[in-house]
């Protein structure tokens, strides 16, 4: 578990370095006081955490990630495959967001949603299933689209389509 702490400390040190690098651009004395104090504290506390991982070789209590998800025996074997799922899903969401302005909110959302549903459910078996799935998705997103774009007059992103 010291490993987690060490990674955590390194990540936060990186964050503070990135933000420290932005400090010289500030001219107004009012804008500097608070960030300087906070960044100093962040750097110091991260360093303390880092040093502690070397001083206390074994953490006293095992640190389970806060989600409380239980690491079930045997789950490790499938890990490689599931990481792939996470990465693919994140990429799909990124593309989804990137296309909102290009293609349009509704069409992009239906396509991305359908892809994720297909992918996370390990494909579809029958054409019938695919059609039902598409209808459900188109309707679900359609309800939100109508409420926001037509009733509440929120200008949802449009591109070539809608």
């Amino acid at each position: 578990m010291k490993n987690i702490d060490r990674k955590a400390a390194i990540m936060m040190l990186a964050v503070s370095i990135i933000f420290w690098a932005q400090m010289p651009g500030l001219m107004n004395p009012f804008s500097i006081v608070f960030p300087r104090a906070i960044l100093t504290l962040l750097t110091i506390t991260s360093l303390v955490l880092l040093v502690r991982t070397y001083l206390r070789p074994k953490g006293q209590a095992p640190e389970v990630a806060q989600s409380g998800k239980a690491q079930e025996p045997g789950a490790g074997a499938a890990n490689a495959g599931t990481w792939k799922n996470v990465i693919i899903s994140v990429v799909v969401v990124a593309v989804w967001i990137a296309l909102l302005d290009v293609v349009g909110f509704y069409v992009t959302s239906v396509l991305a949603f359908a892809f994720l549903a297909w992918f996370l459910g390990q494909g579809v078996k029958h054409l019938r299933e695919a059609v039902t799935m598409l209808v459900i998705i188109a309707a679900e997103i359609g309800v939100f689209y109508v409420i926001f774009a037509k009733l509440l007059l929120v200008p949802l992103p449009t591109g070539v389509l809608f």
């Binding site: 969401v93 994720l116 549903a117 459910g121 998705i137």
Partner: peptide, 8 residues
């Protein structure tokens, strides 16, 4: 398969 994309 529906829950995750719905939340997203």
């Amino acid at each position: 398969r529906y829950l995750a994309p719905s939340i997203l």
